[in-house]
């Protein structure tokens, strides 16, 4: 009887240990497979684009069709311009909405209108980006009768709003109510408490969220196709069509010319590195200002 029971205990423990090992193995496998696409994409882009990366690529505009050479300098500058325009629209707008939702939207953001706004932001973030491009096309391009940098920037800016807004709101909510009350109890008006204590207190993580959304839109292609369009020359004004890396890559990739294919790969490499750099920079910002997240909890 004694013997029997001990057998039972050891056998069931062995079985549990075996299942445990199997499950842990599966989790490690899933985790490894998850980083695999990233590294293979990156490796492939480097391998393909590396050879076409040279000085001319960074400094020259595209050569006329048929001529070998030329670069993507205008597209690089164009992407920077578009992202700057998008940030100018998307960041203040998104942060304002977040401030409304977390600080003012009736009953600490639990009012009915706040609920509608939050739902709309979530809907907007799941709308395909090409639809946003179409909307801006109808709104701006048709009215202005031309493709323009402003239209492209607006499309990207609209795409930024929901992500900026929702991440910022989450972060503002992580600051407990009694911190706000402490500010009010010092005889400060609510808007000063919000701007200089609450917003400033979570500026590290908020910057991170914003940087990630910038990185996200800087690779968008579809919404630019019929808003910013493309431009084979240096940009001449914000009301004119403007080149961008993603659209340039797209145009070159579907062309029949080998040289353009090579340049498309180089452009892809540049774009990936740009996004990488932005993520990396975010990490640095996050780690220096990031104490606030760890300690801001109480």
């Amino acid at each position: 009887m004694q013997r029997h029971f001990a057998d039972y205990i050891f056998r069931s423990y062995r079985k549990r240990k075996a299942i445990n090992a199997l499950m842990c193995g599966l989790l490690v496998l899933a985790a490894t497979l998850a980083i695999f696409p990233l590294f293979s994409v990156f490796g492939y882009v480097v391998a393909q684009g590396y050879s076409a990366l040279n000085w001319e690529f960074f400094t020259a505009v595209p050569k006329p069709v048929g001529e070998i050479g030329g670069g993507m300098a205008n597209a690089l500058l164009g992407t920077c311009t578009l992202v700057a325009l998008a940030s100018l629209i998307g960041i203040p707008w998104g942060v304002s909405v977040a401030l409304y939702l977390s600080e003012y939207g009736g009953k600490q953001g639990r009012g009915r209108f706040a609920g509608v706004v939050r739902f709309s932001a979530d809907m907007l973030s799941s709308i395909p980006s090409i639809i946003v491009g179409l909307f801006v096309y109808a709104l701006v391009v048709i009215t202005m009768r031309r493709f323009s940098a402003v239209a492209g920037g607006l499309a990207l800016g609209i795409l930024m709003i929901p992500t900026v807004c929702r991440t910022t709101e989450e972060l503002l909510r992580m600051i407990p109510e009694h911190i706000r009350e402490a500010g009010l109890a010092l005889g400060l008006p609510r808007w000063k408490v919000i701007l200089w204590i609450i917003l400033k207190g979570s500026r590290g993580p908020i910057t991170t969220g914003i940087m990630l959304s910038i990185a996200r839109v800087s690779g968008e292609t579809a919404p630019l196709l019929f808003t910013a369009f493309n431009n084979r020359f240096w940009q001449s004004g914000l009301d004119q069509p403007i080149a961008s890396l993603p659209v340039q890559i797209y145009t070159y990739a579907i062309s029949p010319y080998d040289d353009w294919h090579r340049q498309a790969w180089a452009g892809a490499l540049l774009l990936v590195m740009l996004v990488f750099a932005m993520n990396l920079l975010t990490r640095v910002v996050f780690n220096s200002g990031g104490n606030s997240k760890k300690q801001g909890g109480n």
């Binding site: 911190i179 402490a182 009010l184 010092l186 005889g187 400033k200 207190g201 979570s202 801001g296």
Partner: peptide, 26 residues
Amino acid sequence: RRKIGMVFQKPNPFPSLSIFDNVAIG
């Protein structure tokens, strides 16, 4: 509230502010 200050049950220094700024911010 400027005239009538308050100290709360839970210590609640402002996050991300230095000791100096916590005192000076008012």
